[in-house]
Amino acid sequence: MQNDQFFTRRRMLLAGAAALGAAGTAGAFLASGAGETTETAPAPVAGPQARQALKSSAFRLQPLTGDGPPRAAPRRLKTRREPILRISGRGRNMMLTFDDGPNPHYTPHILDTLAEYDVRAMFFVCGECVVKYRELVARMAEEGHVVGNHTWTHPLLTTLNRKEIRSEMERTSDIIEDTYGERPQWFRAPYGAWNRAAFQLGAEMGMEPMAWTVDTTDWDTPGTDVIIDRVEHGAAPGVVVLSHDAGGDRSQTVHAIREWLPHLLDSGYHLTVPRRRA
């Protein structure tokens, strides 16, 4: 998953970005990789129901200014020893996640498909992409998706020292907040390579570590049919699906989601996102 080389520099977000919505986090009952269920939090929001609850007044654009109020310190969380791999709770709930973006060639198509089927997802974004394509992150927030931290340059964290890891994570949280007024409450380590420093720093910054249950392997461009098959056969209550909207040629991902998303919905699954933690 090398960082994508972008061909054009799209316009920056004109005057602001969405300040409210489901860009925050803290899901329902979250299960750790060891199968333990963590503390109870508000129930996750199913995609279609979440859309119906949104009103046009739920989102507003704020001008980006350099002289705004100082950032509030995030609430420090308990440090985990392993990332969250799945969601738990009653019902046929699943969660869709996309990494490495935003990217102007693929992210808009994925957002269009999600909007067509009234579904919310999580996007783990890289800071160096956000600064180039702020308008796409603003759109994510406006349409009720959750935006998470995926570091600034997508490095292998296990090769960095603590100071370098902090910089990668903190800069990304800052640019996300500058874009639409909310700091991310979820973090995902690039390549799924976690270490103690990543868990500790994420907790200090108020972010829970999120991994995945089903890897579509779209990062390896295995073919559209393979991606569809991995999602449809991996579907189950509590599953977190990993896909990518950047980091390479993601045209297969764009085509595949148009097939497997309506299949999941027709099979009775609800695609959820975590609620924002107050």
Rank of each mutant, 00 (worst) to 15 (best):
G66L: 14
R90V: 08
R60L: 08
T65D: 03
T79V: 12
M94A: 13
F123W: 00
N93K: 14
R92H: 04
R75T: 10
R86K: 11
G66A: 15
R80P: 09
R92E: 10
A46D: 15
D112Y: 11
Y117K: 07
T79W: 03
C129L: 08
T97Y: 00
R86T: 07
L136S: 02
P63E: 08
E143Y: 08
P63Y: 02
E128Q: 11
P69M: 13
G47A: 12
P44V: 06
E135Y: 09
L114N: 04
E143L: 04
R80D: 08
K78H: 03
E143G: 01
Q49C: 12
Y133D: 11
M140Q: 05
N93H: 11
V125D: 09
L96F: 01
P70I: 07
K78W: 04
L64R: 12
T97G: 00
F98H: 02
T113I: 13
R80S: 11
G144I: 01
A58T: 13
M95N: 01
K55R: 15
P104D: 09
P44Y: 07
H105C: 05
T113V: 14
V119W: 01
P83V: 10
P102N: 05
R81A: 06
P69Y: 09
A50E: 06
P104L: 10
A115I: 04
A141W: 12
R139E: 05
P63R: 15
G101I: 06
Y117E: 05
R120Y: 13
D118K: 13
A72C: 02
R90Q: 12
L54C: 10
V131C: 11
E135S: 15
V125T: 05
E128F: 09
H109D: 10
K55P: 07
Q52V: 14
G91E: 06
L54P: 03
R80A: 14
Y106K: 10
M95R: 09
M122T: 15
F59N: 13
G89W: 05
A58H: 14
T113K: 08
L114K: 00
E135K: 15
L85V: 15
P48A: 14
V137R: 02
L54T: 03
M122L: 03
P63T: 05
H105R: 15
E82W: 04
A53D: 12
K55Q: 15
Y106Q: 00
Y117G: 01
P104F: 08
T113S: 03
M140D: 05
L111G: 03
Q52P: 00
L54I: 06
R71A: 15
L85Q: 12
R75E: 06
H105D: 07
M94Q: 02
R60Q: 11
V131Q: 14
V119C: 11
G144Q: 06
M94P: 00
Q52L: 14
A138L: 01
R60T: 09
T79F: 04
R80H: 11
A115Y: 03
G66R: 11
N103T: 10
E135T: 12
R120W: 01
T97A: 01
P69F: 13
R51D: 00
V137W: 03
D67R: 15
Y106A: 09
L85S: 12
T79M: 06
M94E: 04
G144P: 04
F124H: 02
P63Q: 05
R75P: 03
R90I: 06
R92C: 01
F98M: 02
Y133T: 10
V137H: 00
V130T: 07
V137Q: 01
S57W: 05
Q52A: 14
I110E: 05
